[in-house]
């Protein structure tokens, strides 16, 4: 049975532990954008001990590279990008306190194991609905790696951002398994 929750980011352990695959979440609060190039830089910062662009504890990371903001709007189109490209970085970020990531598409077994180990979740948002999703973003500010252009790290304030729990902290997986003929 799918249930509905309204949650406030950053997330706490007790927010995540109740979530099961198929649950719908309306997320409000502060989240951070990062995709391929920003992940690489964040992990480099961890290795050199440089300052991180945002606190990892409780953080929600949104895999998105938005289009430029029109006048009078905080952001342009802003839907999820495909998540597997971040898989090699994600377990480490969960071990340091990241509670959720938002994207689309399948995750590796290593990421699913990290969700169980660190009590975290993977949320899916509707891919290709970037205009619609942008309406739930209240503000956007570049906080690191401005030179990366669309891949810069942004702090977003979201209100009732619509998500589905795709992988939960119990090893569950929402995506349909294809019925391939033998």
């Amino acid at each position: 049975m799918s249930r509905e929750y309204s949650l406030q980011a950053p997330l706490r352990d007790e927010d995540v532990i109740h979530l099961k695959i198929g649950d719908r979440v309306l997320l409000s609060g502060i989240i951070y954008t990062a995709r391929d190039a920003a992940h690489k830089k964040i992990v480099q910062a961890l290795e050199t001990g440089a300052e991180l662009p945002f606190p990892l504890k409780g953080a929600v990371i949104y895999y998105v590279g938005p289009s430029p903001a029109p006048a009078g709007r905080p952001i342009g189109s802003a839907g999820p990008t495909t998540s597997y490209r971040m898989d090699s970085y994600t377990p480490r970020l969960h071990s340091l306190g990241v509670k959720a990531t938002i994207g689309k598409g399948k995750r590796s077994q290593e990421v699913k194991d990290a969700l169980v180990r660190h009590n975290a979740v993977y949320f899916g948002a509707t891919g290709g609905a970037g205009a619609l999703l942008s309406q739930r973003i209240v503000s956007s500010k570049i906080i690191a790696f401005e030179d990366l252009g669309p891949e810069a790290v942004r702090e977003l304030v979201v209100r009732d951002f619509p998500l589905l729990v795709v992988n939960d902290a119990f090893g569950g997986e929402l995506y349909a398994r294809p019925n391939l003929p033998d």
């Binding site: 802003a78 509707t126 970037g130 205009a131």
Partner: peptide, 24 residues
Amino acid sequence: EILGQLEENAALARESGLPLCQDT
């Protein structure tokens, strides 16, 4: 539900001038 969101997204992009998808 997803297909309905895609219709809604297309209508919004047409009216608002936002790109349909951030990946242009």
